[in-house]
Design a protein around this nucleic acid. Structure first.
Lengths: 295, 295
DNA sequence: CGAACAGTTGATATCCCTCAATGGCGGTGG
DNA sequence: CCACCGCCATTGAGGGATATCAACTGTTCG
């Protein structure tokens, strides 16, 4: 692992409650609906007093759940600060990570359809959430149709994004899965004006593996391989992205490259990217070959 | 809706438009909102004339799309009859199957958030869809809040179900993935009063593989292995389930069995199911061993 | 019939899971 | 303070699972 050149200190910036106009009332933090819409990046057009409605904040410590599987659905949450994981429990009781929410994400959407949660969300760091009681939201929506529509757009956007992320992983080999995972994280950091070039992972290798469908050892090896190839720089949970272009270009497996829409045929695809450019370190691991040579 | 009482011949019955009180007007088929709610298994309480609103049907032939990636979002669709696939296109233009909608499923939810579809839906058989123009739905929702809430519950239910299905696959090996896929199909057939014991797959091995993250050869081999173990009977696309108990009990990989919530430790799990009971056929393939012996 | 496609099966290479050993890091208690 | 412990991460060895390549069969459709 190369020494991470310098890391201005994204950790500190990400950790502090980096919100906006919130007010202290009744002893806790409260935010307006307008604040929430800004956090969700919704451009709400209504100029309405409903935007002044107040919603309470909720703090979580690491390992503390926002809600659990089976719990009655009462409220959505918006992440104002911190990092979390969303997990589902399979029939055997084993947990499967399905997402890593962070600032601006909407939590609890899975409870809308059944009045009961099928997933659970657990804090990976100190977190600050804004609670949106669903009944209250419905009441506000009753008065303001535009608001209701906008909020549901936010809900479906959140769910579509999760599906897109999960769906793209299936066709990739381990190195590419890990690479795509890092790209996802980087893009989300960029959207939040965090550094997308260097950041700290908040989850364990095991949790990453659960999300990607890999074992923790394979995740670790893939990170090491990307490091050895000079694409990233890994130091425990600190990641620096050196070659974002390569990180984004790792191809899917051969069998899935031919899955062109409607059966259009293509000549055998040659791996487009050549990683031969950067070989700062000797390769000693078998899986590193693919990252380094396109031959 | 349809008097789907008994169905001696699922295949034939599934193919014909097994709907109900629809009306022929302006040359096409139309259904009421009440019909749609029944199809979606929504218990709508409102006794309202909005339930008499009419929605047009749309027929698709095999390989015909209901909508395509990038197309402007204008309407949701409810499947009244037929079988389809939902696909997403990754950055390389390769297609990835993310679902196999059938009767009672809601199509097009992914367009709500962006006014543009990120997935596309293609018919695998002759299909009959009911078109729900979204603007019209919003207008109806404006008059009847209960209706709007109910429809959004249907939307989120559809999306949650897809996520759950995708999420459970990651921890399974190939045989278990295929088994779970068959269980999914069987359960959905059962919910529709179709035969869950024997049915015909409408998609190719390649499409199944794309959905499961496997190659078509592996899908074929897994089906053959389940057949050889006496768990199912495969004949091209016709499937008969002989041992649903075994089909549901295939365990995840070792590494993912230990992913108990919050780090609770368990003794090394012994594979609970013993498949030794039924060995009607000789085993000649390496991958069949796991299905037959728990030793 | 022949072409194109879907499915099955085999041989082989490779990927990644599994088991195992090691080191780093943080907390806890003598 | 430091030994100790537990958890996390890394790395290696080995083997099993699955992708890949290839050959063959069956089906559909013109």
């Amino acid at each position: 692992m190369a020494p991470l050149t310098e890391m201005p200190n994204p950790t500190a910036a990400e950790h502090k409650a980096c919100l906006t106009p919130h007010r202290s009332e009744r002893g806790g933090l409260w935010s307006t609906l307008a604040d929430i819409c800004q956090l969700l990046q919704l451009d709400i057009k209504v100029r309405d007093d409903t935007l002044e409605a107040l919603f309470q904040h909720r703090r979580l410590k690491p390992d503390e759940p926002a809600y659990r599987v089976g719990q009655a659905f009462e409220a959505l949450h918006v992440v104002n600060a911190g990092f979390l994981k969303t997990v589902m429990l399979d029939s055997g009781g084993d947990e499967r990570v399905v997402g890593f929410p962070m600032k601006g994400d909407l939590l609890g959407c899975d409870g809308i359809c059944n009045d009961r949660h099928v997933s659970e969300v657990i804090a990976l760091s100190d977190c600050d959430l804004i609670v949106i009681p669903f009944k209250q939201l419905l009441c506000l929506g009753h008065d303001c149709q535009e608001l209701e529509h906008t909020m549901y757009r936010a809900v479906t956007r959140q769910m579509v994004q999760e599906t897109v992320n999960l769906a793209t992983l299936g066709a990739l080999r381990s190195d590419a899965r890990v690479a795509r995972f890092l790209v996802m994280i980087a893009d989300r950091h960029a959207a939040l004006k965090f550094s997308s070039q260097s950041f700290r992972l908040r989850m364990t290798r095991r949790e990453i593996g659960s999300y990607l469908g890999l074992t923790l050892e394979t995740v670790s090896r893939s990170l090491s391989a990307l490091d050895a190839a000079g694409v990233i720089c890994v130091n425990q949970r600190d990641i620096e992205i050196l070659r974002p272009d390569i990180l984004r270009s790792l191809p899917p497996m051969e069998a899935f490259q031919r899955m062109k829409p409607m059966g259009i045929k293509f000549p055998k695809t040659t791996h487009s990217a050549d990683f031969t450019a950067s070989l700062p370190k000797p390769n000693a691991h078998p899986s590193r070959a693919r990252l380094q040579a396109a031959a």
